[in-house]
Simulated assay, not measured.
Amino acid sequence: MDNAIDHAPLHHDGDDGIGVVVCHGFTGSPHSMRPWARHLAAQGWSVRLPLLPGHGTTWRDANRTTWQDWYGEVERALTDLRQHCSSVYAVGLSMGGTLALRLAQQHPDLAGIVLVNPAVTMLRWDAKLLPVLGLVVPSVPAIGNDIAKPGVDEGAYPRTPVRAAAQLRRFQAVVRADLPKVAQPVLLYHSADDHVVEPVNSEIVLKGISSADVREVVLHDSYHVATLDHDAPQIFDGSVAFIQRLSS
């Protein structure tokens, strides 16, 4: 298995009219989503896995971006896929799940979404202090590589950019407020043991959305970055079955 970190975006054109936008998480990169994106592409589907602005370089670059920059990048991927796909889906990990939810809120014709440990709130006591903290402290220690599987590196930043984290918190508030706008089919995976995103995040999503077609799957053998963990095959195969069912 090749463990080299690859931050590059992935662009694949399929031939059967299905497209998938794949969204990576905060301070991460396409590396954490590449195996999933490749699995989707192997079905003959068109796949876009963009590199979000301020990611895949240094944490200092993230502090110069806004949540609108991140969302704009995945929305451009959606627009691109719409040009030659009859149905488009979105999948995402952590903040990537938040981005997928926003796509569903802003684009009712999105066919469905798959979420893995979506992040729509921060319960840490100091989360409310992020805007002020960002004025004096550019970064804080990061919680990276929350993966149960030994020897796996997600390639995330070694520091958490504080101003970018404040942007994430603002973005989460926007997405939480608009959760009732999500009416598409939803497949939600969340890890029973997640040291980054609190379990209440998935509960908030499930209670807030308006979707009638909803399935929740608890992952018992993975931590936060489940797309690179023991349960990754379950996520990959489950998302394929989900998209095939909705596209048949």
Score class of each variant (00 low, 15 high):
R124A: 15
L101E: 03
L101N: 00
G112Y: 03
D80A: 14
D109G: 04
N145V: 06
A119P: 01
A148T: 02
I147R: 07
L133N: 05
V136A: 04
D126S: 11
N63V: 10
S139M: 02
L123A: 06
D126W: 07
P150T: 13
L93Y: 00
Q68H: 10
L93P: 00
R64P: 07
G151Y: 03
G134R: 04
G92H: 05
A62W: 00
L81M: 08
A62D: 02
S94E: 12
V140D: 08
A142I: 03
Y89L: 09
T58P: 07
G134T: 02
R124F: 07
S86W: 06
W70P: 01
N117Q: 02
Y89P: 14
L133H: 13
L129A: 15
L129Y: 12
V114L: 07
V114E: 09
W125F: 04
G56S: 03
S139A: 09
R76E: 05
L78Y: 15
G134W: 10
N117R: 05
E73S: 14
H107L: 10
H55G: 02
I147K: 02
V140Q: 06
G96W: 03
P138T: 05
L130F: 07
L115T: 07
L81G: 00
I113Q: 06
T98C: 09
T98Y: 05
N63C: 13
Q83G: 10
M122N: 04
D146H: 00
T65S: 03
G144M: 00
D146C: 06
P141K: 07
P108G: 12
D69P: 03
I143A: 13
G97E: 10
S86D: 13
L103G: 00
V114F: 12
P118L: 11
W67D: 03
L78Q: 02
L130W: 08
D80P: 14
T57I: 05
V91R: 11
P131T: 05
P138L: 10
A62M: 10
Q106E: 09
A148M: 03
R76H: 11
G151C: 11
A77V: 02
P141L: 15
W67C: 06
D69Q: 04
D80F: 15
V116P: 09
G56R: 00
G54C: 15
L110H: 14
H84P: 00
G96A: 05
D126K: 09
L129P: 06
R124N: 15
D109Q: 03
